[in-house]
Simulated scan of single mutants.
Amino acid sequence: MRTVRARALVVAAALAAGLVGAGTSHGVPGVGTAAPAAAPQAPALEAAGDCSEQTPAPSSSLTGRKVQEIKNRGANGTLVVGVDQNSYNWGFRNPQSGQLEGFDILLSRAIAKAVLGDANRVTFRTVTTAKRIEAIRNGTVDMVVRTMTINCERRKDIAFSAPYFSTGQRLVVPKSDKSTTVAEALKGKRACAAQQSSSETELKKPGYGTSSVTIVENQLDCLVLMQLGKVDGTLTDSSLAAAQAAQDPAVRLVDENIIPAKIGIGLKQEDTDLTALVNQILLDYRANGGWQAAYDRWLAPSMGANSAPYLP
């Protein structure tokens, strides 16, 4: 247990410079792979949430303003993607290689491959949960691929691709806590969530009866606080909750799954051509087996072999 805790503490403390050059594309599923002859037709991609705004229809065009801007960066130019480096299995830094790995990292490389012809032509900028929208709006990144829930409030500031993952909210608690519902587990307890996350919004609603709510920069910080005995439960996306449980065998997920939601890629509102291209890439990624291969590699061990519940 001491080793597991130390690893989590090291990861949480590893908020590095935030700029990571392109790495190797070895083992990137679905990148540069021809679709199988009998590939199933991918379902139509639609915007998620109750908003009236719709994501642009998928398009394979490379002639749009933003796409051309990216392609004209020269032979050494890259696609700049905002990612996480603290979400195990999604976007995390491998302590042995120092490279970023995970489901979202593979998806980012697949997008770079489609736009620039090379999965290595991507620069990862690590961004905190609270800084995702700011990074998109000020042009620090071309897009954010970081387990970002699509919702109406965020659509006021940024655009979203079609969803690429279905999720919800799950509560992580110590295994000694036998609660079966979120409300039961939080009553009179100290809760934790990431700043400007859907979980923070949920915990601000009345009815949970928490004794306190701690807000941190990244959801992994909540796991560290739980290990230190400073909070009693962490509310986060179900995908990230499963990753926390995979990191620390002393915690578990409360059975109840609340607030069904979908994860999408965040982009600038005016970059409609890039959003349309990304939507086409997401369709192709599903059809050529890239999505399933990435799920099997990174998520199946903690979320189960059946990926059907998580397909958007």
Rank of each mutant, 00 (worst) to 15 (best):
W298N: 06
A193D: 01
V141Y: 03
A194E: 01
S211H: 07
D221I: 05
T78F: 05
G139V: 12
H26L: 15
L253Y: 02
Q169V: 12
A17L: 14
A38N: 15
Q169I: 05
S97R: 00
T147R: 14
A75V: 06
T126E: 05
D296K: 14
K205N: 10
V172F: 01
P309T: 04
V11P: 02
M143I: 11
E69N: 09
A135M: 05
P312C: 12
S87H: 00
R5I: 08
P36N: 13
N120S: 14
A261Q: 08
S61N: 09
V224I: 13
R286M: 12
I111P: 01
N279V: 04
D221L: 04
Y88C: 07
M303H: 05
V213M: 01
R146W: 05
D284L: 01
F103R: 06
M143Y: 02
A12S: 04
A193W: 02
Y285F: 15
Q85V: 12
S197T: 05
A308C: 06
G49C: 14
L107Y: 03
R154C: 07
S302N: 06
G266A: 15
Y310D: 05
L228E: 11
P174I: 06
S211D: 10
R170C: 08
E46G: 10
K178L: 13
E101A: 08
P206R: 12
T167C: 10
A8D: 07
R5G: 14
N138W: 04
R252G: 09
G18Q: 10
A261H: 08
L240V: 15
T63V: 08
R252Y: 06
N306Y: 00
E69L: 04
L283P: 00
N120D: 05
A47G: 14
A39M: 14
A287W: 03
V173W: 03
L225C: 05
T126C: 03
A17P: 00
N279I: 06
T3A: 15
G18F: 06
D177C: 10
A159P: 01
E202L: 11
I136A: 13
T78A: 15
A75L: 09
I281N: 02
E217A: 15
A276Q: 11
N86M: 07
S307F: 05
I258E: 08
A114P: 02
S108Y: 03
A191P: 02
L240F: 10
S179Q: 09
A250Q: 09
G188Q: 08
N94Y: 00
M1Q: 06
R286Y: 14
L311H: 05
T126Y: 03
K204P: 00
A37S: 12
L203T: 05
P56E: 09
A194R: 03
G233M: 09
S60R: 09
M303W: 09
L228Y: 00
M148H: 08
R154P: 01
K156S: 04
